[in-house]
Amino acid sequence: MRFAGLALAAAALAAGAAPAQERAIPSGELKSGSAFLGSDLRALQNDAFANPGMLWVERGEKLWREPAGKKNLACASCHKDTSMRGVAASYPKIDKASGKLFNLEGRINQCRTERMGAEPLRYESEDLLALTAYIARQSLGLPIAARIDGAARAHFEAGRAAYHLRRGQMNLSCAHCHDAQWGKRLLSETISQGHPNAYPAYRMEWQTMGSLERRLRACLSGIRAEMLPYGSQEYLDLELFLAWRAQGLPIETPGVRR
């Protein structure tokens, strides 16, 4: 019933931010994943020195200034250091030139391939995690504000459908856990609302940093569902829907997770 209701409401929606009552979790009840951590990991996330994710942020800052590719340009050759504040909070975003939806990782690689004459960086490579974390860190504390109007609309709808699709051997959708069961224990985990605001994040289970897509793959793997290749359209669409669900939640990168 709720799914049908959502679809109708979505059709009636004007461009831009949607009113809160359409979200399964209204904005007043939004909680970051860090609210579901034990006090130790929450303290570690908030410790700007000991948070292990800061190693990647620092590495990203170095890479930002390092020339790469055929044109021997650095990110800093074209972008001012302060220019990335707020950027991560607006992603995934439509690239005006191509009309395509990009997440931050994709956008970084677009600059590398199209503007620097460099190879794209692999997902989960230290360098792509580092640059993504460095850029996202500059939006620390800023509310997520992705747009779902215009060309983003169709991606948003596809993301919504992907979010509600039952999958895997357990036949569960993302909503079954993150809308209906948040706050409940799942073995040693407490299921959170499934927000993207802390990524890339350092996860103890991985013992390293990982992208949002790696986290999504972990959820899919957990319900024994097919994992898609990194950067696939379904993930991008899902990421846009997640950003909309989390609208207003402050960026916390680098998060620390179990």
Binding site: L187, E205, W206, S221
Partner: peptide
């Protein structure tokens, strides 16, 4: 020490 919820291959 509690065990992790799912053995994810991610």
């Amino acid at each position: 020490v509690t065990l992790s919820a799912c053995l994810d291959e991610s």
